[in-house]
Nucleic acid binder design. Structure first.
Length: 898
RNA sequence: GGGCGCUUAGCUCAGUGGUAGAGCGGCGGUUUUACACACCGUUGGUCGGCGGUUCGAAUCCGUCAGCGCCCA
């Protein structure tokens, strides 16, 4: 006996272990089956499963399970990435709590700690993915710092360098003062900050009392100003171009230059230029050959060294002692002091409140500081071109398509990719420096030494670059490094390129674009055919989930409460095209009802002795009920398959739900009860056969979304061995004899029951009152149908019998129109005839309204002349039907007039 | 400022030229032996506004408004 309700907590872990033990998730490079490949977006090794993972992983698992059932050799490649900054931060914090310090222990010892931490705590998310039911090929699990993947990183780095696509350059980087490292453009997020716009007065050289006013949001950087720019066409400042200003506090002479970067509309129309601390100013500096002194150090503290030589005492303007005293001061403290001093000197014209966007490190959360440093860069511009072309030509297709625009916009304006990070945890850059500064890039120290020996004719001391690579550098290789590249493995041959990449739109730049670039460059082929972009998970109100808002939902807790199937089905149902998913507890609870519904349907089958029967052949079905449900299941199969092919998880869920609940449970089982409760015989056997056959189809259709409950029932009902549904064949439509006739018959039964139920409910007839149904004007086929379905009609329409009206209509009937017939319910003692007249009049008005609308359309000569013939014909039929219904309702009204 | 997207029933959303839909909710009824996480019935929308194209527009075009996201 099945338990009263499904108990996911007891069943799910057991089944997952079984699948894993059976090797049900395993891909087989030796098989002849065509591959289906999804590369997991490797979660952070520091991470734990959040609701966003639940979405993306559920989607990936649905696709994988579905394709696997279709007979594809499915590989869902698992793994995690080493998450440079995040992991280093976690371990540093841990060490700090034990009173230890990274720098004190040194690089080697620190890395040992990180590896230890990874071994102990790094696998949390992989365990959690199992709870979700993710059918990843675990024996193939990889980590971006694996030996194999590290070898791929070395090879790629060295190759790109040799090809001139990876180089060192001294330019401005986004510097994170907390982590003390460069970060890429993408790791910077603009945040709106309420600040001020300070209008500073810079004295014009040789013209006492004349000032050029510059507006700035960052007054502390003025120490590093090397020019003031005005717009070339700005008449207000035309005479100043070429003249010099005395930079307050430092006393340094700086030129006024004409540059279009200066916007006459903004601020004062003149802008101070600090090339070493602002990206735009850097470009201006390059255009005008300005010097580029840095005045902030790695900690974002004031650094006077590079401007020391030019400090000059100028009465009322230049104050070297003050400037020197700022050395080592935090940037924000320095700002206050500088402003106070300028105020004293009368060099602040005004201060405006000003809201502006300030770049922040996405992990550290502090304002990033542009700094002039030497870093390694990848020539993304060059690598981007083939990637752009691949999407333009459809080698890779985004779903939904509109995301291609986002991809193009970024790729066409791509900047050099800064790949070096001043961290210890990561792939150390394979570059060695000779004492003269010459760099040797090689896959090993020995190779670098050999190259150096060749150059210098002797051995020299080489020092390895201390920096590591951006984590995304190794992630970019994921689609082929996980398959064994640079070795030519069977896996690489079979599973590259992947079928589809599934991710959120926020990752298009970080990862998708970079995989495209690296994949095409090193494999001469795009890394995946489709990129399915899903939305973000938000709370019920549509708010982004965040810890600070306190609206985060823990997927594991939801699984605990409602089961993984319920969570997964909810996600499927809510994942529409290009939409964010608004998820609340209530939604999961609601969809759990569907899991329970399936379970209860199974209990009904069990009570009726219905079990799997492979010998049942749908093509031999005779009873209309069996043929009807088999036919309906064919359509459900088609709908589900088409929906999955189109990545329409909402439609897939809706089609399966509609069929399982709305057709199988609500009608097939209910209509089948009289037969199932009746004596054994061919009809009963056939209904049982259809019941088990279609239930098997339902289990298969739902398996990608609800793997656990379906797998459990699959075995309990004898469809297959334990844990075998996962590899059962995806259903295909079956042959159903004369499906159209079965549809027509069941449509009639459903309509009759529906109409009678509706009238009874509206007339407040208690369910305990049962009446005969008298058919007036019924065709012979209708009467035959009524006869065939009498037991079901009795049961579902609360009827005692169904028979043709003999003679005149009895007094006090309720009447409904079903097709050509009028059905009379003799209810003289129960109903209010006035109310019945009102009800009929309302129905007649609706029919009349419909008829009028259609008649007007058909009365339009243009419509008849220009619309498609089948549309006109359809409208003619609808008009006829509406008019016939009006006539029958008129007759019904006449019958009970007084 | 530039770009993208969204606006359809109380809520969440499908619907991309031919009868406006689903789920949930609301309301009324029901212990009819799978299921109250249920069953039956029912209510509910000038498809954001305006203009255009068309025989016909939620759907195509233009425009305006509101909201969201990305970029500067």
């Amino acid at each position: 006996m099945l338990t009263k309700t499904f108990d996911p907590a007891a069943v799910e872990p057991r089944l997952y272990e079984l699948w894993e033990k059976l090797g049900a998730f395993t891909a087989d490079p030796a098989s002849s089956a065509p591959p289906f490949v999804i590369m997991i977006p490797p979660p952070n090794v520091t991470g734990s499963l959040h609701i966003g993972h639940a979405l993306t992983m559920s989607v990936q698992d649905m696709l994988t399970r579905w394709r696997r059932m279709q007979g594809r050799d499915a590989l869902w490649q698992p793994g995690t990435d080493h998450a440079g900054i995040a992991t280093q931060m976690v371990v540093e914090r841990l060490l700090a709590s034990q009173g230890q310090d990274r720098r004190a222990m040194g690089r080697e010892a620190f890395l040992k700690h990180v590896w230890e931490w990874k071994a102990q705590s790094g696998g949390a998310i992989t365990r959690q993915l199992r709870r979700l039911g993710a059918s990843l090929d675990w024996p193939r699990e990889r980590f971006t710092m694996d030996e194999g993947l590290s070898r791929a990183v070395l090879k790629v780095f060295v190759t790109l360098h040799r090809q001139g696509l990876l180089y060192r350059d001294r330019r401005l980087v986004n510097w994170d003062p907390v982590f003390q490292t460069a970060i890429s453009d993408l790791e910077v997020e603009s945040r709106e900050v309420k600040g001020s716009l300070w209008h500073l007065k810079y004295p014009v050289e040789g013209e006492p009392g004349r000032f050029l006013v510059v507006a700035t949001t960052r007054p502390e950087t003025m120490l590093g100003d090397t020019a003031v720019a005005v717009h070339p066409e700005d008449a207000r400042f035309a005479d100043l171009v070429g003249k010099h200003l005395i930079l307050p506090l430092t006393g340094r002479r700086i030129p006024v230059v004409a540059d279009t970067h200066s916007d006459p509309e903004k601020g004062s129309g003149a802008v101070k230029i600090t090339p070493a601390h602002d990206f735009n100013d850097f470009e201006v500096g390059k255009r005008h050959a300005l010097s580029m002194p840095s005045v902030l150090d790695a900690d974002a503290k004031v650094m006077v060294a590079e401007i020391e030589a030019e400090l000059a005492e100028v009465p009322g303007i230049g104050d070297p002692a003050f400037v020197r005293a700022l050395d080592g001061l935090d940037r924000f403290d320095a700002r206050k002091k500088i402003l106070a001093r300028l105020e004293e000197l009368g060099l602040i014209e005004k201060i405006e409140a000003h809201t502006h966007m300030v770049p922040h490190g996405d992990r550290s959360g502090v304002p990033i500081e542009p700094r002039l440093t030497m870093q390694w860069y990848v020539d993304a511009k060059t690598l981007a071109q083939p990637a752009i072309k691949a999407v333009e030509t459809g080698q890779t297709v985004f779903v939904p398509r509109q995301w291609e625009n986002t991809f193009f916009a970024w790729m066409r304006d791509i900047q050099p990719w800064c790949v070096s990070r001043q961290l210890w945890w990561g792939h150390q850059i394979p570059a060695w420096y000779a004492p003269d500064g010459e760099v040797f890039v090689a896959e090993s120290e020995a190779e670098a030494a050999a190259a150096a020996r060749e150059k210098y004719g002797r051995d020299v001391t080489l020092i390895r670059d201390a920096d590591v690579l951006d984590t995304w550098f190794s992630s970019a290789l994921w689609p082929f490094s996980t398959l064994g590249w640079p070795d030519e493995t069977p896996e690489l041959k079979k599973y590259y390129p992947g079928s589809v990449l599934v991710t959120g739109f926020d990752i298009i730049f970080f990862w998708v674009a970079r995989m495209m670039m690296m994949g095409i460059h090193f494999m001469n082929e795009v890394p995946f055919r489709h990129v399915y972009i899903h939305g973000l998970v938000r709370d019920e109100k549509g708010q982004k989930m965040s810890k600070s808002k306190g609206n985060v939902m823990d997927p594991l807790e939801l699984i605990e409460a409602y089961g993984a199937d319920a969570l997964r089905f909810t996600i499927a149902a809510l994942t529409g095209p290009g939409r964010d998913v608004k998820l609340g507890r209530k939604r999961v609870e609601d969809h759990r009802a569907f899991v329970t519904k399936i379970w209860n349907a199974a209990r009904f089958l069990e009570m009726n002795g219905i079990v799997a029967d492979a010998s049942f052949d749908p093509a031999t079905a005779k009873s209309p009920l069996a043929r009807w449900i088999l036919d309906a299941s064919n359509r459900a199969v088609e709908e589900c398959t088409e929906a999955l092919e189109a990545y329409r998880f909402d439609e897939y869920a809706a089609a399966a739900y509609r069929f399982a609940w709305g057709s199988y449970c609500d009608w097939f089982i209910e209509l089948g009860k009289p037969v199932l409760n009746g004596p054994d015989g061919p009809e009963k056997a056939e209904v049982k056969g259809a019941a088990q056959h279609v239930f098997g189809t339902i289990l298969k259709l739902l398996h990608p979304a609800m793997p656990f409950v379906t797998e459990e029932l699959w075995h309990l009902f004898g469809y297959g061995e334990q844990g075998s549904l996962i590899r059962a064949a995806w259903p295909a439509p079956v042959t159903v004899p004369d499906a159209e006739a079965a549809r027509a018959e069941l449509d009639w039964v459903v309509a009759l029951i529906g109409e009678v139920r509706g009238a009874r409910a509206e007339m407040n007839v208690p369910p305990s009152v049962t009446v005969p149904l008298l058919l007036q004007g019924a065709a012979g086929t209708t009467l035959a149908r009524a006869d065939r379905w009498i037991d079901a009609i009795r049961r579902l329409a609360r009827a005692t019998e169904v028979k043709p009206l003999d003679g005149a209509a009895p007094k006090g009937v309720a009447q409904v129109v079903v097709g050509e017939a009028t059905v009379m319910l003799p209810l003289a003692d129960v109903i209010d005839l006035g109310a019945e007249r009102t009800r009929l009049a309302k129905a007649r008005a609706a029919a009349e309204n419909e008829a009028k609308k259609i008649a007007a359309k058909l009365g339009n000569a243009d419509f008849v002349a220009r619309a498609k013939e089948e549309v006109v014909e359809e409208n003619r039929e609808r008009l006829a039907a509406a008019e016939a219904e009006m006539a029958r309702l008129d007759a019904a009204l006449a019958r009970i007039a007084e």
